[in-house]
């Protein structure tokens, strides 16, 4: 972020497309405060009624994993096929399982 106090901070925008669904990240925008971020998000991301609810989160508060670490970071899951239901052999004829 720039040090210039007149530069608006960046906000990450999350939109809930339909009641009951989760809020999904759609992008980001600059705004002077949260209220303005919500209103701008409405104008940028919900012009065609894409949204039912908006969350804004200051980008500086988002911490992310490092893509370059992805291989070693996620590899503990690689050899655990038994976490999936298809790993198990069900006896012939058994239903609803």
């Amino acid at each position: 972020m720039s040090d210039n106090p007149n530069n608006w901070p960046l906000w990450e925008i999350f939109i809930q497309s339909k009641r009951g669904l989760e809020h999904k990240h759609v992008g980001s925008l600059h705004a002077a405060d949260p209220q303005m971020a919500i209103e701008n998000a409405r104008d940028v991301y919900t012009r065609r009624q894409e949204g039912n609810s908006i969350w804004v989160v200051a980008s500086q508060h988002v911490h992310a994993s490092r893509p370059e670490d992805a291989e070693s970071f996620y590899d503990p899951a690689d050899d655990k096929a038994y976490r999936h239901p298809t790993f198990y052999t069900m006896p012939e004829g058994a239903k609803y399982i």
């Binding site: 976490r83 239901p85 198990y88 069900m90 399982i97």
Partner: peptide, 11 residues
Amino acid sequence: FHQRQGYEIMA
């Protein structure tokens, strides 16, 4: 997978 692993043990 929880129910299936249990049923498999029983089988």
